[in-house]
Nucleic acid binder design. Structure first.
Lengths: 260, 260
DNA sequence: CACCTTCTATCATTCAGTGATAGTTACTAT
DNA sequence: ATAGTAACTATCACTGAATGATAGAAGGTG
């Protein structure tokens, strides 16, 4: 096994060491979220930098509650998570307000539309409505993706300044899906452009051949409470054609913002 | 304020008072799960029988982590829950194994099929594949429903004995969706019948007009790791027609059991 | 302006979480 | 069989983090 080199995990274990117990439990859950298969107790302990005994207590407690399940190969997330997610989808104001509007948007444009929110340094897809012919790449609800690629830039552009600077400071240069490099300076410039124009048209940034048009959903504080986008492929649509749908998506974004 | 009198909540806060912190945090989450709208801090404190100060610390911590979100009307579950759920769906052995088999089952029968597991005294729908014409009542993934109505009885029948007796002891008599009464004795008799025959055909138990045929998914320990069922309505299908599909659903249940 | 509610902040006490260690079970290899 | 290894469980003294009573700030309402 690859062994060490994992203690550098910058888990957001927050301010100092208050609220340790709960934070550690959430670290364990999120460690299992990142895992692509069952984890042994010792693996969880290593990944989340906890003492084995502490890990054991925490994990067993989460197992008792159904948040983690155990099989012969180790521990993984449990079905109770699904109940919570169901409650979220049913109750969440943003989701419930956006759903019919996205449905209408997808009906009128024929494209897949989606809604996502910022969560730390990532964005989470909260809702999606497929277009007439669904994309072969099904972007799954609940999936986390980086903020600095594709539509996430809109959330970044409208985020609070201190967070943004922190984010950029620690961010290494990345490459887009089509191979183009994206330096911190590129990103800064693009964020400024987004703030000015109010939208972002992304071509092959996160996914090769993907084309998306993203608009912020205005929140009460003037920032972006979320963002919505229309997604298609470079094969089916030209950037100009997609950009022509800006009024449509803007109307939808405004409608959602007005109802939250 | 009314103060006391709330300590009677039978929350599964488990063995004595060890692991308090985490258990309380989960209580808070599940209290928000049950709520059908945003809850104020004081409401959460009351619902989960916690001191206001404790509630505040816990809630704020969960907010910081994205498990809870706050708006003008109070607190509700946050989008990070969705990420966890996504990871569960993608990784869960049972779900991934069952999905294609349920798809095949629905294709060959034309009916909606679903997979659910036991969680405490409820069952949770883990996967569902719609039939040719989806039911008007869309049973949502992640939803919790009682164990003693409809297909849940199968999980109850194959559960461990001590749990079962506990369950029956505290259970009040209930009424089925069509008005029939179901006493504890009725239930015991039915569970025995299920254990013998290995299936359960439910008519208008949980939902009026619903008709379902349920089979356990055998686990390694001889018990039921889960259960799958075919769902239709009394309008479209007769009980006899549905029962004729027993070989089909049995084959599917066996196939799932063999692969976990 | 007084009143109420919601949320936040402070702080001494103590009890629950911590982590080192030892024990149990189960599997693999020789 | 037997030793060896890994995974998980159990125990326990110490301590520091969670607790909860109380006071305070912020925001709204009649």
């Amino acid at each position: 096994m690859e062994g060490l080199g994992t203690a550098s995990m910058g888990a957001p274990t927050g301010s100092g060491n208050q609220g340790r117990t709960l934070d550690r439990a959430l670290d364990v859950l999120e460690c299992l979220e990142r895992a692509r298969g069952p984890l042994r107790l010792s693996e969880i302990a290593r990944e989340s930098a906890l003492h084995l005994a502490t890990t054991q207590r925490t994990v067993n407690q989460l197992v008792r509650r159904g948040y983690i399940q155990q099989d012969g190969l180790g521990y993984s997330l449990g079905p109770v998570i699904l109940s919570l997610a169901h409650a979220f989808v049913v109750n969440d104001r943003l989701s419930t307000v956006a759903s019919p509007i996205l449905t209408e948007l997808s009906a009128s444009t024929g494209l897949t539309s989606s809604l996502f929110v910022r969560s730390g340094r990532e964005r989470i897809l909260v809702a999606r409505v497929d277009g007439v012919n669904p994309l072969r790449y099904q972007f799954p609800i609940g999936r986390r993706v980086p903020l600095d690629l594709g539509g996430g830039k809109v959330l970044l552009a409208y985020g609070e300044d201190p967070e943004l600077d922190d984010y950029l400071a620690e961010r290494p240069d990345v490459h887009l899906a089509d191979g183009r490099a994206q330096t911190v300076e590129d990103l800064r410039a693009e964020l400024a452009r987004i703030r000015e124009s109010g939208y972002h048209l992304a071509e092959s940034e996160r996914e090769l051949g993907a084309l998306s048009l993203t608009r912020p959903v205005p929140g009460h504080d003037g920032g972006a409470a979320a963002a919505i986008n229309l997604v298609t492929t470079t094969e089916k649509t030209t950037p100009e054609e997609l950009l022509a749908l800006l009024p449509e998506i803007s109307r939808a974004a405004g409608a959602i913002g007005a109802r939250i």
